[in-house]
Design a protein around this nucleic acid. Sequence first.
DNA 1: CGTAGTGTTGAGTCAAGTCAATGGTTGTGG
DNA 2: CCACAACCATTGACTTGACTCAACACTACG
Lengths: 247, 247
Amino acid sequence: MSADPHPLELFVRTFELRTPLSGSDRQQILALPYTLRTLESGSYVVREADAPRYCGVLVSGFAYRQKLTGEGARQIIAINLPGEAIDLQHLFLREADHSVQMLTRGEVAFVAREDLQALVRGSSAISHALLVQMQVEASIFREWVLNVGRRPAKSRLAHVLCELAVRLDAVGLAAHYGYQLPMTQEELADALGLTPVHVNRTIKSLEADKLIARDRRRLFFPEWKRLRDVGDFNARYLHLNPLPSSE
Amino acid sequence: MSADPHPLELFVRTFELRTPLSGSDRQQILALPYTLRTLESGSYVVREADAPRYCGVLVSGFAYRQKLTGEGARQIIAINLPGEAIDLQHLFLREADHSVQMLTRGEVAFVAREDLQALVRGSSAISHALLVQMQVEASIFREWVLNVGRRPAKSRLAHVLCELAVRLDAVGLAAHYGYQLPMTQEELADALGLTPVHVNRTIKSLEADKLIARDRRRLFFPEWKRLRDVGDFNARYLHLNPLPSSE
DNA sequence: CGTAGTGTTGAGTCAAGTCAATGGTTGTGG
DNA sequence: CCACAACCATTGACTTGACTCAACACTACG
């Protein structure tokens, strides 16, 4: 019997993971004008080299940031969860330096870039929340450089499985003990800098170690702590502990 | 006969690469209180897990961002050039998620975190410039994920050599045709996600191809365009074209 | 029930890693 | 000015983690 939740509700809640917001802050965000669109899996939210004019906010479904080499190899740079803003990364840049595509079907609320820029100029707690969000994403990029650059395949895979578990858990979309992986093994490979074949073997190897269990793409982690160790995963870089409100 | 330049002079010029600043903006930045310190190669500017209290600005010398795996393997995430701010990435975060160390001996101007936060709150062109700087760095992180994740060793090495050339050129510290590489092959290896031995062989291979020439650590690029092709390098992600002033 | 997209497996190869030794440079102190 | 030490660069021989190619199996969906 409850009314449909506001599409930006989750967006606000994502902010509140890291920054306290007052009731009026919340209202101001929910008052942002937006256009809601349903996008199919694979469709572009942002295209490299385009001038960003809107900031998409993922309302439901998953998306990924992606770049291609000249040879055509794809690297997935980050996975975006429902509630996350897609184009904060380009908020002050003239040209997109990477693309964002839908990983699954989902809804995106497009907010005018100027409106978000105005919020940041507005000097309120909201701009602080936006900037924190941007910086946390940058931190995740850094961890991915480390993951892709220095960890062996098994650990690399375990690491992103842990990251997704913790991030999904933080927004209430999954629990530590398991979730529905929103991507194919090929996409996973592009996120890990590996080939699909090797990802398949690495998954099987984690499975043989009883570190994960599977039903289709649904994953279970019967021994979370051991998985975390294998993945060399420490959630510090996700900056999930809220700032003291004095900050 | 000219007076010593203001230590933050280069910092301002770095901003102006991407954002126009008025004379008064410039004055406001140069008026920031700071403490200047000379740091030896290898010394820490920021330590992972610390609460950042200052924002270091690199006045001279080079620094690098770095993270370690649990196994102790190091990945260098980015190189910082003179004029760049070190802790913008942590400006709104409670805890550092990576470390920054000096690559060479150099001077760092430490500015109080609160003072910089105040600038951002101040809603002026300056805060815009700071945010652009942060976002450009995030863009460089993304390119590094691609570089480390998807390019073969030769291309990977050529790519960072190109990046350094263009960035050094942009602040007037080098030209496309060559510069003094501020790091050892071991450090280069940690930036590329390779081993020092393989980096050495890859350097020799670029040299054999006449794509680079060397005298100690001084590098020359006799065929810049070909190097750029081999490195699959497109400067878009550096966002060096200034924004139209209306933005 | 056919077709397209995924996932799985085997066999062989190769780019990059490991281990280990040798050479060069730079700086320092005697 | 020399000699040693510390660090860095280079090279060779061998190993291996990840890739390639190719086939086959499963699943979902029209």
